[in-house]
């Protein structure tokens, strides 16, 4: 039982922060299918940082990991600028832009990873190897039956994500900026009339979205793959979008959706182990999160209320 909780949370938390990134972008009125590309690009910058600085730190040092999370956020935010410029400045169709941004992220990071490995590090490899993240166990709490799993073998990044998510929650719901951001998604003209800068707010929202996704991507790279390669593109960005849709574009319900995904996945793997099925069956387990997404979408999409101005290009001249 505790393995299910440990692995489930390690998967759910990065997914959650990526979904929060999606919420930021979409609540500001910019459709964001580019989360997959953001998380990959952010992870790429973070991993590149680790690869470049690995000689500066002691092998067991955990400092590069924390720094790489920061670099991934900055990198993801900068990469997200591409989506923002396409959608806001160039008035591109936001769905197309999202898909294009994803495709470019995959092509570019894949190419750059092997190219940098050959020309800078002199090794022909398609991945950046990361150190193994340490884990910690909270002494007393971890001995609580069942729930103790939440405090056992926790990745440090799970705590960081929790803190960042709290900050994101505060910013979105308790500040003037957050209120304006949400208003941009529902009624941009009103924001404009009140003296707000719709385009500016949307730029910031999309970049924050990229930063949060980058953080999530780097955490995925550490927890699931322990290295960075193109295998990071397995559709978790789209899972995050689905989680956001169940969560009705609100942060707290989205969190529960992510936890559900995490437990479905880790529970499935555990089941294969317990029943002693051959490894080919793990392919069937891999289906679970996607299948669950599709089923939940069928049940929940109908009653959902997406931001009213979502996907609309805001044109000041149009009234």
């Amino acid at each position: 039982m505790s393995t299910i909780i440990i692995d489930g949370m390690a998967f759910a938390m990065p997914l959650f922060i990526i979904a929060v990134g999606g919420i930021y972008s979409e609540r500001s009125g910019v459709t964001n299918l580019a989360l997959e590309g953001f998380l990959g690009a952010g992870g790429f910058f973070g991993a590149l940082f680790v690869a470049c600085t690995s000689s500066l730190f002691a092998a067991s040092s955990q400092l590069p990991m924390y720094l790489s999370l920061l670099v991934a956020m900055v990198g993801g935010g900068l990469y997200a600028l591409l989506h923002a410029v396409l959608c806001i400045k160039f008035k591109a169709n936001q769905v197309i832009s999202g898909v294009v941004v994803n495709i470019i992220a995959m092509a570019l990071t894949d190419f750059l990873t092997s190219q940098i490995n050959t020309s800078v590090f002199g090794a022909s490899s398609d991945r950046f190897v990361l150190s193994v993240s340490s884990r910690f166990t909270v002494p007393v709490l971890s001995s609580i039956p069942v729930l103790g799993g939440f405090f056992t073998n926790v990745y440090p990044f799970e705590v960081i994500i929790l803190l960042v998510a709290l900050a994101a929650y505060y910013l979105l719901y308790k500040t003037t900026f957050g209120m304006r951001l949400r208003a941009c998604g529902d009624n941009p003209s009103a924001v404009d009339a009140a003296g707000g800068d719709v385009a500016g707010i949307r730029y910031i929202a999309v970049m924050l979205s990229g930063a949060l996704s980058g953080l999530g991507g780097m955490c995925f790279a550490y927890s699931i793959f322990a290295n960075y390669s193109s295998s990071i593109y397995v559709g978790y960005g789209y899972l995050a979008i689905a989680a956001m849709i169940f969560g009705n574009w609100k942060i707290l319900p989205t969190f529960w959706a992510c936890v559900l995904f995490g437990f479905a996945r880790s529970g499935g793997y555990r089941l294969v182990q317990v029943l002693g099925m051959p490894s080919t069956y793990s392919d069937l387990i891999m289906i679970l999160p996607y299948l669950l997404t599709l089923l939940l979408l069928v049940f929940f999409s109908k009653n959902n209320r997406s931001p009213r101005a979502l996907g609309e290009i805001y044109d000041k001249g149009k009234r």
Binding site: L33, Y238, D283, I287, Y290, L291, L297
Partner: peptide
């Protein structure tokens, strides 16, 4: 069901790939 076709198609892609 008002499901965004991009999201459902991606999910179906992954389901088929593994199945």
């Amino acid at each position: 069901f008002n499901i965004n076709e991009v999201v459902s198609a991606i999910m179906i892609n992954y389901i088929l790939q593994y199945l």
